[in-house]
Deep mutational scan, measured.
Amino acid sequence: RLRTTITPEQLEILYQKYLLDSNPTRKMLDHIAHEVGLKKRVVQVWFQNTRARERK
């Protein structure tokens, strides 16, 4: 499986959303995924990875 490439514009939106809520609901994940044009699962994993990186 190929990795999904996230553009700088998408990253900017994801980080803005992360600052508002680091643990979004399913509904919010759907909305964010639609807004940035990525699959919900990709957005979900991005949030998981970002939370894990923050803990280190």
Rank of each mutant, 00 (worst) to 15 (best):
V43G: 00
A52R: 06
D30R: 09
Q48A: 13
T25I: 04
Y18I: 03
N49C: 04
R26D: 15
T4A: 08
L29C: 10
L11N: 14
Y18R: 01
E9R: 06
R41A: 13
L38T: 03
L11A: 12
D21Q: 07
R53G: 13
K56V: 10
N23S: 09
Q10P: 02
Y18Q: 02
T50K: 09
D21I: 03
E54M: 08
E35G: 04
R3F: 12
W46E: 00
D21H: 03
G37L: 01
E35M: 04
V43E: 00
R53V: 11
F47K: 01
L19G: 08
Y15Q: 14
N23M: 09
L2K: 12
V36S: 09
A52P: 03
V42P: 00
Y18W: 05
T4N: 10
L38E: 01
E54H: 07
E12Q: 10
P24Q: 05
K17Y: 09
P24C: 00
T5F: 05
G37K: 11
N23Y: 09
R41K: 14
V45D: 15
K27M: 08
L19M: 12
S22M: 07
R55K: 15
T5D: 12
E9F: 04
L29A: 03
V45F: 10
K17Q: 13
T50R: 10
Q10S: 04
N23Q: 12
G37A: 05
N49M: 06
L14W: 02
E12T: 12
T7Q: 10
H31W: 07
T7E: 12
K27E: 14
Y15R: 12
P8M: 15
L38P: 02
K40N: 14
K39R: 11
K39V: 11
V42E: 15
R55Q: 14
Q16D: 07
D30H: 11
R41N: 14
K40Y: 13
V45L: 13
K39D: 13
R1N: 15
R53A: 12
Y18P: 01
E12K: 03
L14I: 00
I13S: 08
T25N: 08
D30A: 10
Y18M: 05
Q44A: 11
I6S: 02
F47D: 01
I6D: 04
I13M: 07
Y15M: 10
Q10T: 06
V42K: 13
